[in-house]
Each structure stands twice: as C-alpha cells, then as structure tokens.
C-alpha cells in the first residue's frame, strides 16, 4: 500500500553515497601522505637537513630552504600581525556601521579571493622594482603580508566580536579611556582567538610558492640568509625545483622536502589547536 519500504531503500543508498564521498577525503589524505612518506623517508636524514642544494642528488639538502622559510615566517608574522590586528580593532571597536566600514569589509573579502599569484605580481612591481628591495626576504615577507592580511583581519574580527559587551562596559564604568579598554580588555580577551586564526593564516603562507616565484625567489641559494635584505629560497620553492628536474633522485628529494614542510606545517597547526582548546576551556562567558 504505502511506498515507505522503497523510499527507505533510496534513503539507504543515498546515505551510503554520502558516507563514501566523505570517506574519499580521508582516503585521499592517507594516500597523499603515504605517497610522499614512502618516497621521501629514505632520503630524510641529518645530512639532508644540514646540506645546501646541489647538482648531485646524494649531496643535496634543504638547509637554505628551511632557514629561508623560518626567516620568511618570522618577518611575515612580525609585519602582518600588528597590521592585521590594528585593522580588525579599528573595524570592530572604532568604526560604527558606516559606508567606509562597508567598503573596507567588502574589499577585504574581495582581496581574500584574489589568486596568490596576482599578489606575487604586485610584490614584483611594488617591492622588488619600485621600492628597490630586490629579491630579498623583506620583499617576500611584505608580499606574503598582503596575501594573508585579509585572512588575519577576518579571523581577528571574529575573535574580537566574541568578547562580550559587558566587559567593555565594566571597563568604561571604571573611567578607562577607549584605548585602555581596547588594549587591556578587548585585546587580552580576544588574543587567543586572534593568534589561532593568525597562525593558520601564516601556515598558509608557509606553503605558498607562487607569489615568491614571482618576486624571483627561485634561484640557486647555497647559503643561509644573514639579514632581511638577503636573497632566499623557501621549502615549497625548493620542492618545486626538485619536482621539475627530470632525474628520479630529485623526485625523492622533493618527497623528503615535502615531509619536512608537512612537519613544519602540522606543528604550526598543532600550536594553533592547543591555543584554541585552552581558550575554549578557560574563557567561557
């Protein structure tokens, strides 16, 4: 009489399809890790970590790229964090609903969708050529800053918005000024959230190669940078370089480099997750 049995069967089939799709994501991640680890692990040793790139695969290492990535992360963080947090504070605490705020916010979400390679072109024209910073760590860090700034601003805004209004009112009621309130109460309370979002944004910058290739970071670098004005290479670019070589040994080096890059990335994510979990545990309003 009723079609319930048939309808439920369709439902079961559909459920299985949904489950399979979700499973594919998991399986792909596993295959991707397996592929790189089996290829790269035999090449990953102390010699690989402490050697400069070389034309002879057995002697090649990732030292300059690893140092370059660390320098890059440090300077990008140093520049992008104050700017991003400053912009977020302005938008959330200082500017009420206004045309300016709407324009800035729409613009930020548009910037978040601009392909990274376009930022590379901007960096090339602006920092490398116009400001004559050449192919330096500073040029790279400034380019990366522009790239991840929208993400930092958006996630910082969310963290700031989560600070309850009552805390601000309590501070004002004690006679605090706007900046005192913002700095001592809003910022301190939002900081864990801001840091979580910013670390995730920085980890995106860690894996980016395209914008840095644009500003000319892909050169043979057999030294570690000493100042922010030195030329440099970074992990993803070194990996790309090795992938592009025809000899198979370089592929294995690339895989070993990928393992280093993923470990670097996962430790940054782990830090972000630890901060997030602590924050959720201790400050529930």
């Amino acid at each position: 009489m009723d079609n319930v049995t048939a309808r439920k069967r369709i439902g079961k089939v559909f459920w299985a399809m949904c489950l399979a799709s979700t499973g594919i994501a998991l399986i792909v991640l596993a295959m991707l890790l397996y592929d790189s680890i089996t290829d790269g692990l035999p090449w990953l040793d102390l010699q690989f970590l402490s050697s400069f790139p070389s034309r002879i695969p057995a002697r090649a290492g990732i030292k300059s790229a690893l140092y370059g990535s660390i320098w890059m992360m440090a300077f990008t963080a140093l520049i992008s964090l104050p700017l991003g947090i400053g912009a977020a504070l302005y938008l959330e605490e200082y500017e009420k609903e206004s045309l300016l705020k709407r324009i800035i916010e729409t613009n930020i979400s548009n910037l978040a969708g601009v392909p990274s390679i376009v930022y590379g072109i901007l960096g090339l024209a602006l920092f490398v050529r116009t400001l004559r910073l050449e192919r330096s760590i500073l040029s790279g860090a400034l380019t990366m800053t522009l790239l991840i700034l929208p993400v930092i601003i958006i996630s910082s805004q969310e963290a700031i918005r989560a600070v309850p209004k009552s805390i601000r009112e309590a501070s004002y009621a004690l006679g605090a000024s706007k900046w005192e309130t913002t700095r001592h109460h809003v910022l301190t309370n939002a900081l864990p959230g801001i840091l979580t979002g910013s670390i995730l944004a920085l980890s995106r910058a860690l894996g980016e190669a395209a914008p840095l290739i644009m500003i000319g970071a892909l050169t043979f670098i057999a030294f570690t940078p000493q100042t922010p004005f030195d030329p440099f290479t970074v992990l993803p670019i070194q990996i790309f370089n090795w992938i592009s070589r025809p000899q198979e040994e370089f592929r294995f080096l690339a895989a070993a480099g990928i393992i280093v890059l993923l470990i670097f990335l996962l430790s940054m994510n782990a830090v972000a997750i630890i901060i997030r979990n602590r924050y959720e545990k201790y400050s529930r309003w």
Binding site: M31, L32, D35, S36, I239, I243, A255, L265
Partner: peptide, 20 residues
Amino acid sequence: VLEILAGVPTVVYGYFALTF
C-alpha cells in the same frame, strides 16, 4: 581532516598528481 586537506600546500598536490 578536511581542514588539513585544505591546508596541504599546493606543491604537494602537484607532486601527488605527477607521481601518483
């Protein structure tokens, strides 16, 4: 898991495409 998948650098995806 989805977040990690989204965070994997694109050179790694390139490597995966080429070698797998």
